[in-house]
């Protein structure tokens, strides 16, 4: 398969970027999207051009590194996957593909398609944990947890922190990400103890970092590679009201 790629190139955070067009040929339809970019990069290196920088690591859809905005969609034209799981068979031979980095004020571009997502870690630092030291724990069966809650907590905890929700949201809101973490802990007895402080601190940090607010459009849920549900956003709102009225 042959493709025309229109890729955002930017030397570093200080310099202006621009789109550059590339042609890439002889791509197997069984290749992943990132393997297609590998092929392009190999060609660029041999032509004495600088390869395209993009984040990637596990290449099995779980580390949350890869973060490309492909033809107007975070992680490209397939459901419930990350870019590294996107395969070229999802495109047509001869397609032209526009590849951009995540765009959000709290996610500045570092180079080409790589953005700085440490904002997410800063939010988690404010309360994305249970305050338990190593060795403090009672027996794991000391507190039974209703299966339904455990399952919902897992569904929320499945978030890989890739930032597709922010990239997809017209407001660059981080509500789906933050709500997933808040929900995970709100649903478990171990997390309830600090629920109020947690939601207050994490929301305050999220606002301070310059993410937009939630308009309940649902774009985040539609583009989330792990299918994190909007019900988590309802839950964080609820938790926030509870915390605010206390």
């Amino acid at each position: 398969m042959d493709f025309t790629l229109k890729i955002w190139r930017q030397k570093n955070s200080g310099e202006k970027g621009k789109f550059v067009n590339y042609k890439v040929g002889n791509v197997s339809s069984d290749s992943s999207f990132l393997e297609m970019l590998d092929v392009l990069n190999e060609e660029l290196i041999l032509k004495n051009e600088e390869p395209v920088a993009f984040d990637h690591d596990c290449r099995e859809g779980i580390c949350g590194c890869c973060s490309l905005y492909i033809n107007g969609r975070p992680h490209g034209p397939d459901e419930l996957i990350t870019v590294c799981q996107l395969h070229m068979r999802k495109f047509k031979d001869g397609d032209s593909i526009v590849i951009e980095p995540w765009r959000a004020r709290p996610f500045p571009v570092i180079k080409d398609l790589i953005v700085d997502r440490t904002a997410f870690d800063k939010i988690l630092m404010e309360g994305g944990f249970v305050s338990v030291n190593t060795g403090n724990a009672p027996d794991a069966h000391a507190v039974p947890v209703p299966k339904q809650n455990a399952d919902l907590a897992f569904d929320a905890a499945a978030c890989i922190g890739c930032g597709a929700c922010v990239a997809a949201c017209k407001n660059a809101s981080a509500m789906l990400f933050v709500s997933a973490k808040v929900s995970q802990f709100a649903l478990l007895p171990q997390g309830r103890v600090e629920a109020k402080e947690r939601v207050r601190a994490m929301v305050a940090k999220m606002d301070e970092l310059g993410f937009g607010s939630c308009s309940n459009t649902g774009a985040c849920e539609a583009e989330c590679p792990k299918g994190i549900s909007l019900t988590n956003i309802a839950r964080i709102n609820r938790e926030f009201i509870k915390a605010g009225s206390a």
Binding site: F129, V130, V132, A137, P138, V145, A150, A157, Q184, Q190
Partner: peptide, 11 residues
């Protein structure tokens, strides 16, 4: 330790 941290193991 993991349960105390809120790791959602299957139940």
């Amino acid at each position: 330790q993991c349960v105390a941290q809120g790791v959602p193991f299957a139940r």
